[in-house]
Design a protein around this nucleic acid. Structure first.
Lengths: 198, 198
DNA sequence: ATCCAAATTAAACAGCCGTTCAATTAATGA
DNA sequence: TCATTAATTGAACGGCTGTTTAATTTGGAT
């Protein structure tokens, strides 16, 4: 019995997908530079050179691992279009906070960390985050100056996420009233959606 | 004439300070990992080993190079205490925006980039940014729930800075109305300062 | 004048990184 | 069946990193 060390494995291979998932998680958690190919390979249970075999380079892997906007985020605007503005603002606020605070799919923080650690990814980030998540929400509501509002909404969500997760406010200041904060963020979003910009 | 290559230089040495300034600028611009000791040394016009000689390690240098809150930021709260709340909110908003948009002393972005690229710096960041900049402003105004408001104010400023500088909105979407945005940010700050959190 | 400490550099070290190469095994199609 | 392609590994390479060591020059105190 010779222990088969190298060579192709039996059955269909899921390595490519596993590498992609490991890369997504690790890039989001540690940023670009700190996420080594060796670490990705380890999490995917494969050899580092297999990562290069599938994705040619770390750059290409990073591009392929860019997080997509979640289905909830893409489906939200159509739901919101039917509601009155004040209610829509509250609903959007709640949905954004859910997405930000959900443990698994906190891809907003991943996007932020990726962009701050890799300037070349900024254009990609703007496309995904501002243009595909925020702008559709706002244009669907038929508001004036959609670009301005999209940028402002992105600012609020980004700041929220950054301060919350990155500064680890919760564990450091446990006295913070979470519901009060949620309420205020909703009001800020409502302000962005209802303020007269002309 | 032997070209004196090594050994102490004549006159008083400013190398330590020059290293510190180069480090501050480079950490703010490129984050922790991308800023190499060799790069800092080059900008300071010294040998890389001199950086270690003065600061013992890159970690210590980073700690020593942490940006301090500007004098304007520290002086602001006393000025604001005298004004009515709505006016104070507008004034604080303008001052924050000036600090964020000023080309030289844009240390807010530096703080953000440092923290996102080096998780160990997060505690230091929270101390400088939230506790020493935002909290004094708010407690001086005698508002309720100062910690909540400080966190929220930090969120807004952080998000503003991040989206503006990091995503390079200006050069990409030149149609954005800058004054309208400034107006709205002031309103958001006013909201944070005036909203009833109880 | 002399001695020690401070400042400075050049050279080198070990460690990690992304990537490449060659070898090996399994699936696939002619 | 047999040649080709895909999947996989281990080993290695060259480059960059933070850091150390030794040597050299100056400043300051005795």
């Amino acid at each position: 019995m010779t222990t088969a060390k190298s060579g192709r494995r039996k059955g269909a291979s899921e390595s490519r997908q596993e590498i992609l998932e490991a890369a997504r998680a690790l890039f989001a958690e540690h940023g670009y530079q700190r996420t080594t190919i060796r670490l990705i390979a380890e999490h995917a249970g494969v050899d580092p050179s297999l990562v290069i075999y599938f994705f040619a380079s770390k750059e290409h892997l990073f591009a392929a691992a860019m997080p997509e906007p979640s289905e909830a985020a893409l489906a939200a605007p159509k739901l919101m279009a039917a509601l009155p503005r004040a209610e829509a603002a509250q609903a959007i606020g709640r949905r954004i906070l859910e997405a930000v605070n959900s443990p698994g799919a906190s891809n907003v923080l991943g996007i932020i960390r990726a962009a701050s650690s890799k300037p070349e990814a900024v254009a990609q980030l703007r496309e995904v985050f501002v243009s595909r998540m925020m702008l559709p929400m706002i244009t669907e509501l038929g508001l004036s100056r959609p670009k301005e509002r999209a940028v402002l909404l992105s600012s609020i969500v980004t700041g929220m996420t950054f301060v919350h997760e990155m500064l680890d406010i919760k564990t450091e200041w446990p006295t913070l009233d979470e519901t009060a904060e949620l309420e205020l963020i909703a009001k800020a979003i409502e302000l962005v959606l209802t303020v007269d910009l002309d």
